[in-house]
């Protein structure tokens, strides 16, 4: 049994909230640079140049990449031989979010009672915390600030099994086409196939945490990803929706077994400001 203090959790979450909002990952930057070379639309290339310039400014000056510093989505992989000491793990995470958003001058975007009062909670809490038990004695923390504009374009389709592979592709392409310019393309398309409605949705979100353009290890799923990416990049939406070839930087699909009656397909879109940072305690 290894001990991990809740204070350490708070400090780490606070640091990750800021790093994620200031520094775009090298994998994202690399794919954006390649898109800037290959994009046919002059306006599209200019947008990609602005995105790269923005990333440089944000990192150097420690200014948020985007004013929408997101809903703070936190993934915790808790080793079954780890022991969290010094208080409630959830409270430690929330305190980290509170400190991180305050210290980093990050925008607080969470409102209480979504359908009526909508009063800002002023510290970006509560965050969305997903906990998974894993083998080992460490705690792996991933902080993903998720913007509202792209999250609003999420879709869930409960297909008939007869619709099969073609149905899956069509429903993902339709989701991206209907999202159009709203989710700040070029996007990363997270796809969750199978399980139940809730399982498909969390698979779609977790798919966004894969290194950009790293294919699914299963060749059949990797081929599906390639085919969807080609379809999506034929839509013509392009960077910021001004027209172009680069509508998506990548398609990441995750698959899970499902019920004999079901074929759930969830889509979670990530804007080009694909922000997340992780740490292991």
């Amino acid at each position: 049994m290894r001990e991990i203090s809740s204070k350490k959790v708070t400090e780490t979450v606070a640091r990750l909230c800021q790093e994620a909002n200031f520094v775009l990952g090298d994998d994202v930057l690399d794919v954006l640079r390649r898109a800037r070379e290959s994009e046919e639309s002059p306006l599209g290339r200019q947008v990609l140049e602005q995105i790269l310039e923005n990333a440089r400014i944000a990192k150097e000056e420690k200014i948020p990449l985007c004013q929408d510093c997101g809903t703070t989505v936190v993934f915790l992989e808790v080793g079954q031989d780890a022991h969290i000491t010094g208080g409630d793990l959830y409270a430690a995470v929330e305190e980290g979010v509170r400190q991180g958003y305050s210290q980093g001058y990050l925008r607080k975007s969470i409102v209480s009672q979504p359908f009526s009062a909508r009063v800002n909670t002023k510290d970006n809490t509560p965050s969305i915390i997903h906990v998974e038990m894993v083998v080992g004695d460490s705690l792996h923390i991933t902080v993903m600030p998720k913007g509202g504009g792209s999250e609003n374009m999420s879709r869930l389709a409960m297909l008939k099994p007869a619709e099969g592979r073609r149905g899956v592709i069509d429903s993902v392409v339709k989701a991206v086409e209907e999202a159009g310019s709203n989710p700040c393309p070029p996007v990363i398309v997270g796809v969750g196939i199978g399980g139940t409605a809730d399982k498909a949705m969390i698979l779609a979100k977790k798919a966004l945490l894969r290194k950009v353009r790293e294919p699914n290890p299963d060749p059949e799923i990797a081929e599906l990803e390639r085919e969807i990416l080609e379809r999506v990049n034929s839509l013509g939406i392009g960077p910021e929706g001004f027209g172009g070839r680069t509508t998506a930087l990548a398609v990441h699909a995750e698959v899970f077994p499902t019920h004999i009656a079901s074929l759930p397909v969830a889509v979670n879109l990530q804007c080009h400001s694909a922000r997340y940072k992780e740490a292991r305690l």
Partner: peptide, 13 residues
């Protein structure tokens, strides 16, 4: 008009 989404640090200038 559209301003470029997701480049808030650049636009601030």
């Amino acid at each position: 008009f559209a301003a470029t989404g997701g480049v808030g640090a650049l636009i601030a200038r």
